[in-house]
């Protein structure tokens, strides 16, 4: 009985999946490419917003692109650049990532709710952080041992001084 409870607790605590595979920075999965077949499944809109005369009367600086993926109903809006061409490209990348994340969730694909590329980037970051922490721990261990040695020496010296002065330990 007790063992079972312990087992459950262990399972509950480790909710994060442990990633066994190591990722190397020079061997990453390829970036997601926009699938030209998806072009027929999306609705593209250019939002310029606002009422009024338009045309020469208003000088707009931003151009917004909205993509809607009809089968899943995902909507993506992007306006990071001044150029409409860049915005359209970037919006497609974001939409592709979202579609891929749906394909990889609920036990399908890698089961992490991320595309392979995004997962690799995520694990790489995690690995680097762990490595950094490990390195830092090693460094402080070294410092601590040095410091304790110095302290020991000091104590020894003090003891010797007291011994000289009083003749007693």
């Amino acid at each position: 009985m007790f063992k079972e409870i312990k087992f459950i607790f262990k399972r509950l605590i480790h909710t994060n999946l442990v990633l066994d595979t190591k990722v190397k920075a020079n061997k990453m999965p390829p970036r997601l490419k926009w699938d030209p077949k998806l072009e027929f499944e999306i609705e593209e809109k250019f939002l310029y917003g606002g009422s009024g005369a338009g045309g020469q009367a208003i000088n707009r600086t931003a151009s917004k692109v909205q993509l809607k993926h009809i089968p899943t109903g995902i909507v993506v809006v992007n306006q990071f650049s001044r150029s409409q061409k860049d915005n359209r490209k970037k919006a497609r990348e974001i939409l592709m990532e979202k579609i891929e994340s749906i394909r990889n969730s609920d036990g399908n694909g890698n089961g992490m709710g991320m595309s392979d590329r995004a997962l690799a980037v995520y694990t790489l970051k995690k690995q680097r952080k762990e490595n950094r922490e490990r390195g830092a721990a090693k460094k402080y261990k070294k410092h601590d041992s040095e410091r304790s040695e110095i302290n020991k020496k000091k104590l020894e010296e003090e003891r010797m001084m007291i011994l000289k002065m009083t003749g007693k330990n």
């Binding site: 009024g52 005369a53 045309g55 020469q56 009367a57 208003i58 000088n59």
Partner: peptide, 19 residues
């Protein structure tokens, strides 16, 4: 050029003053 002169008061400063 096709903006009507009567709409001048409603125009934005950036268009009215600089263009």
């Amino acid at each position: 050029p096709y903006v009507l002169h009567s709409t001048l008061p409603q125009l934005n400063v950036s268009v009215k003053k600089y263009e």
